[in-house]
Amino acid sequence: MNKQICEFEKAVVKELTQSVQNEKLALHIKECGGCREALKVAGWMQNFAAAAPKRALPTAGFIWWKAKLIEKRAAGKRAAQPIVWTQTAAIILITITSVWLVNKYQSKFSPVIENFSASFELIAAPFLIAFVCAAFICLAIAFGWRETSKKTN
């Protein structure tokens, strides 16, 4: 038997698929183990393909509609993107401004903070405010994102 694919193999397989009788080829098949094997496998494969179950597939219209729907959703998300970026930028700006203001007018706040808690260190106040702002930002972003997702879906 041939160790590699025989040069006649293609013609042999074609013979099988087109049911063409060719004496020269028939003679070759008798002599060539590789071609016999190819013929056998090709025959088996074609029987196997013919036995494939018939199953109802979705219509082309459905696939088309689904593709458009996916695109509309993606377009909606892309359209909402600048809004989310603007929201984020605004909230970051507010936070930075708040921290800066707190630092600048710390002396005015300090008596209030001292009254609020004796053990509360003044240096922690800006960080606390920043933390509260950050939490607020996260909530706002999450809420905004959820709302835009709802609209696009």
Partner: peptide
């Protein structure tokens, strides 16, 4: 037929064929 034979599952073939055409579009 091709996908169901190489994947060995009709359900999987349904999904893959659908996804294939979506990607083609």
């Amino acid at each position: 037929s091709y996908v169901s034979r190489i994947a060995g599952s009709q359900t999987l073939a349904d999904d893959i064929v659908q996804e294939t055409f979506l990607r083609y579009l």
